[in-house]
Amino acid sequence: MEVREQYKVTDFLFENNCVVGVKGWDSNKKAFSIRAPLVIDAGGRNAFSLKKFSLKQEPAGKVKIALAAHWKGAKITDDYCYMHVSDPGYTGISSIGKDHANVVLVVNRESMNGEKPHKFYLDILMKNPLRRKILQDAECVESARGVESLAFSVKPLPCGGLLMVGDAMGFIDPFTGEGIYLSLRSSEIAVEVAEKALKENNFSRDFLKGYETRRKQEFDKKFLLSRILQKLIYNPFFCDRVVNRLNADRNLAETLVGVIGDMLPAETVVSFKFLFQLIGISPSIVDLVRKRA
């Protein structure tokens, strides 16, 4: 294995509608080209393939962005991540050690109304009394960093010879899904498909579609769950019902957290029965819906 650092890829090499390598500039601004039967793009949410082929798809509805900064002296314990839902979005607060915390605010992009990101970030954080209690004696030690298009999906690749892994294949909202497992597992699937492609010397688009098929089989229900939970938590009425139900039923809460954290399969909760339990609808109504279905 050879690792080359500070190399910038500027384009792919193509033959017969297949990627057969990359070209670009090295650390000394010298042009290079490298040929390979299969290229794997692990460039994250700003991967070259996403831009080259215009693959990124924004979710339906309002686009969310995240604003994040480190704080010193926040009143939290190291054992918990604090999640607060309040207009116009939600906040995650977690310890990163040495009396520092990471504070992330997620909102619909349009809610900023052209305001400067850092000022908007501070104003919204302090409007919530629970967040204000945690942060009022703390210091924000840096300007808020912005992440656009927090959640997105990816269109199919238009060519062979190329696979994408990790966040390059899509990003799930962190409140309703956990992205590390998705990245690691998609990489495992990609390796299995790549190994088969190398053995059969087949890197065509049709052959490599097996990777996307397997990803969908494994992750589609997880993404469906994320979309359902997004609808619930951004509706004050349903959000209150869900929080109250989770507070009252430990087993229900542990099951949902287990799926969000990828410790349990999404099939465990992607059903009308679990959804009705989550929003506090009686079992008799669940049975009635099941009979009519």
Rank of each mutant, 00 (worst) to 15 (best):
residue 237 F to P: 00
residue 14 F to Y: 15
residue 48 F to H: 05
residue 158 P to A: 04
residue 236 P to Q: 02
residue 126 M to G: 00
residue 155 K to E: 12
residue 3 V to D: 03
residue 92 G to S: 06
residue 190 A to S: 09
residue 9 V to E: 14
residue 70 H to F: 13
residue 282 S to H: 07
residue 174 P to L: 00
residue 202 N to M: 04
residue 21 G to L: 06
residue 84 H to A: 05
residue 72 K to R: 14
residue 27 S to H: 05
residue 291 K to W: 10
residue 25 W to P: 03
residue 201 N to H: 13
residue 30 K to N: 13
residue 198 L to F: 10
residue 146 G to C: 12
residue 40 I to Y: 03
residue 236 P to T: 06
residue 70 H to G: 04
residue 22 V to F: 14
residue 95 S to Y: 06
residue 127 K to D: 04
residue 138 A to P: 15
residue 113 N to G: 07
residue 43 G to D: 06
residue 288 L to M: 07
residue 21 G to W: 11
residue 257 V to G: 12
residue 236 P to H: 05
residue 108 N to C: 14
residue 121 Y to A: 01
residue 170 G to N: 07
residue 83 M to T: 02
residue 59 P to S: 03
residue 225 L to C: 07
residue 211 Y to C: 11
residue 116 K to W: 05
residue 14 F to Q: 07
residue 23 K to Y: 08
residue 261 G to L: 11
residue 41 D to M: 01
residue 77 T to S: 10
residue 278 L to C: 12
residue 37 P to R: 02
residue 57 Q to N: 09
residue 69 A to C: 03
residue 225 L to N: 04
residue 123 D to E: 05
residue 128 N to I: 00
residue 9 V to Y: 15
residue 237 F to R: 04
residue 152 F to G: 12
residue 82 Y to R: 09
residue 13 L to F: 11
residue 198 L to S: 03
residue 28 N to D: 07
residue 239 C to L: 06
residue 97 G to I: 09
residue 195 E to L: 13
residue 100 H to V: 14
residue 147 V to I: 15
residue 218 E to H: 13
residue 172 I to N: 02
residue 77 T to V: 08
residue 267 E to Q: 08
residue 105 L to T: 06
residue 190 A to N: 08
residue 224 L to D: 04
residue 144 A to E: 03
residue 209 K to L: 13
residue 224 L to K: 06
residue 219 F to Q: 06
residue 105 L to R: 04
residue 120 F to N: 05
residue 46 N to C: 00
residue 63 V to L: 01
residue 32 F to M: 02
residue 55 L to A: 05
residue 19 V to L: 10
residue 158 P to L: 06
residue 29 K to C: 10
residue 278 L to W: 10
residue 274 F to L: 04
residue 30 K to E: 15
residue 108 N to K: 15
residue 45 R to W: 04
residue 7 Y to L: 05
residue 111 S to E: 06
residue 119 K to G: 14
residue 152 F to D: 09
